[in-house]
């Protein structure tokens, strides 16, 4: 299964949420790989805390491979290389492999040769991995175009694809997420023009709310009643707006609450962060676990 992470603009929490999703999926036993397709600024190494890939790799990163400059693409085993895991692959976990971008990155055009190479890469990864997470650059980028063209190829017709749209919980973000998917130059229209079926494509898209403040949660207890009421009202309005803009509850895969740790640092939230160090919220971990569960649960994707 290939999961594409998209967002309308930068800084929505797309990378942090999808890396944590990948981490949780791997812990559940899925062989998982993570591709840094953020062609503008490859940064995934930072979140996974893998040295030497902090801002991409030299020579055989994804950009070099897709641009035809390298025959191979580098793979980094997170369990072996990251400080996160402590002592190798946790018992019961699947593999967790990172395919970093190239240092210096740089965009390129989506020509046939690039689509060929990218499709071959997806085919190869699909042979090995249960989950392939692809972190696409924000907005309507080359990366999105490339993903659409590849998945329209016959070689990938039997490989399930999923599209996760990340957004924050404000009016502007909700509108922008709507635009990214349903807008004139949005994901759906681009998909159709690359040969995808509109109705099918719609069933492959789900929304993920990040850095959400749940007005019901105890974290809002310190607020004054007026403030709390205002929060409730905002939340209700936004929910109504989302429903109207076709990104409401029925198509929401999950929400991740605001977590102070993530506000300070882009990282994987480990069980140790919650249980031993007590710095991150249990809720955050649960949200990521729920996302990992939901993304692989066929029932969730059956229909809208």
């Amino acid at each position: 299964m290939i999961i594409f992470s998209v967002s309308h603009k930068g800084g929505t929490g797309r990378s942090v949420t999808s890396t944590n999703l990948a981490y949780r999926a791997a812990l559940r036993g899925y062989n998982t790989c993570y591709l840094d397709f953020d062609f503008g600024s490859p940064t995934i190494g930072t979140i996974f805390d893998v040295e030497n890939t902090i801002d991409g790799v030299i020579g055989n990163g994804l950009h070099d491979f897709l641009g035809g400059r390298s025959a191979d693409v580098q793979r980094v085993s997170v369990w072996a290389e990251s400080k996160v895991s402590g002592s190798g692959q946790p018992p019961g976990a699947g593999s967790l492999t990172l395919l970093p971008g190239s240092r210096g990155g740089g965009e390129f055009s989506v020509d046939k040769a690039t689509v060929d190479r990218c499709t071959e890469l997806f085919v190869k990864l699909d042979e090995e991995f249960d989950l392939i997470l692809v972190d696409l650059s924000a907005g309507r980028s080359f990366a999105v175009e490339l993903a659409l063209q590849c998945t329209a190829r016959p070689a990938l017709r039997m490989v399930p694809a999923r599209w996760l749209v990340f957004h924050r919980w404000t009016r502007q973000h909700v509108r922008a997420a709507h635009d990214l998917v349903y807008g004139e130059r949005g994901l759906l229209n681009s998909a159709v023009s690359t040969g995808h079926d509109d109705a099918v494509m719609r069933t492959l898209i789900r929304f993920v709310r990040t850095a959400y403040i749940d007005p019901h949660s105890p974290s809002t207890d310190h607020l004054s009643p007026t403030q709390q009421n205002w929060l409730f009202e905002m939340d209700r309005d936004l929910e109504a707006l989302s429903a109207r803009l076709k990104l409401g509850r029925s198509v929401r895969l999950g929400s991740v609450s605001l977590d102070a740790v993530l506000q300070w640092r882009e990282q994987l939230i480990t069980d140790r962060d919650v249980k031993t160090l007590g710095i991150a919220h249990e809720e955050t971990v649960r949200a990521y676990e729920d996302l990992a569960q939901a993304v692989t649960d066929p029932a969730v994707w059956e229909s809208i």
Binding site: T119, E120, V123, K124, E127, A155, L156, R157, M158
Partner: peptide, 12 residues
Amino acid sequence: RRLQSSPLLDGC
């Protein structure tokens, strides 16, 4: 890679 993408294979 060429063979694995062949339409003769069902891809599953």
